[in-house]
Design a protein around this nucleic acid. Structure first.
Lengths: 164, 164
DNA sequence: GCGAACTAGTTTGATATCAAACTATAACCT
DNA sequence: AGGTTATAGTTTGATATCAAACTAGTTCGC
């Protein structure tokens, strides 16, 4: 949970989001950047709570999905796809290997590169995480509305691709 | 900049975003959570570059705006409005005070609480940051399109307020 | 009034992340 | 072949963040 419930200026909704009462947000209220950040962090927190119920950090989900869908992927390719620096992935992969969810083999023809694959346990965990993520998505869907969903995602993709 | 340009799987657009080439994203491609994260991080990175040109971290902007719009605000109210834990604000406020952008006074009637206000220097810096943010917003506007902008923000606000 | 419960802000410890420097392998070019 | 350049992954150092424990000051209930 985030911050304790103050008596002045703001109160909390029932799930940790901040509800301003008498704060003047000025231009922030109408700016994409600020609202994008607030929405993302709320959504991330919510998914975080869900995924921790099955004992996995929220960051593991994208990683496992990408390895599952791209067997033998290298760490660098994975980091690019997941939008993280390759150095951030070192401890994550290490942890996944240690816990037996991911197998990691040197390539024969290029011994700098690793190939990552899910183990049976990794596939099982991914299945659980996917169920969890689907529930999360259903919540988001309900908030966004079916009609706007496609357009909304399209805009998000364009922002990720085109912003400079 | 984020990760170096790999030869397999993905390449980089001219500004740091990741452009997948032959990666299978599976369900991630259609999920709100993942796309929200990617968009937010790209946008944040972009703003970060801009704001660093005038020597301020991107996080300072919301803080200064909120103080400027709500003179005498307390740190707790500020943390709620900015969506950060109050403990995260301690070093931020400390830094702003040290650099003379923010003045911090104990309240008379409640000596636990601080009142935060912008100094003249703080106002000047905020003006610069605001110009910078406006340019950033114009970019985002161009990507989103005027017609969808209002609806888009509305959805972001709903996500921040209603997700559980 | 005085102890219990509460509140504002700080400290501490953990995590995630990036960026730059580094190691080892591989590819390239003459 | 041998030196130069590039790539895959790790290490290291810095930053931002949260959450829980803590300190100092306030309010409430009796």
């Amino acid at each position: 949970m985030r911050g304790s419930n103050g008596t002045r200026g703001a109160r909390r909704g029932r799930n940790g989001e901040t509800v301003a009462e008498s704060i003047n947000f000025g231009p922030l209220a109408h700016w994409i950047g600020f609202n994008l950040r607030m929405a993302q962090e709320s959504a991330f927190q919510a998914f975080s709570r869900r995924s921790q119920e099955i004992g996995e950090g929220p960051g593991r989900f994208a990683t496992l999905t990408l390895i599952g869908r791209n067997p033998g992927i290298s760490q660098t390719a994975l980091s690019l796809a997941a939008g993280r620096d390759k150095s951030s992935l070192t401890p994550v992969v290490e942890d996944l290997v240690r816990r037996g969810l991911v197998a990691r083999k040197r390539m024969r023809d290029d011994r700098r590169t690793y190939r990552l694959n899910l183990t049976a346990a990794g596939k099982k965990t991914l299945t659980q995480l996917t169920r969890c993520a689907r529930r999360h998505e259903r919540n988001l869907d309900a908030i966004i509305g079916r009609r706007d969903r496609k357009r909304f995602i399209q805009i998000l993709k364009r922002i990720a691709a085109e912003i400079e």
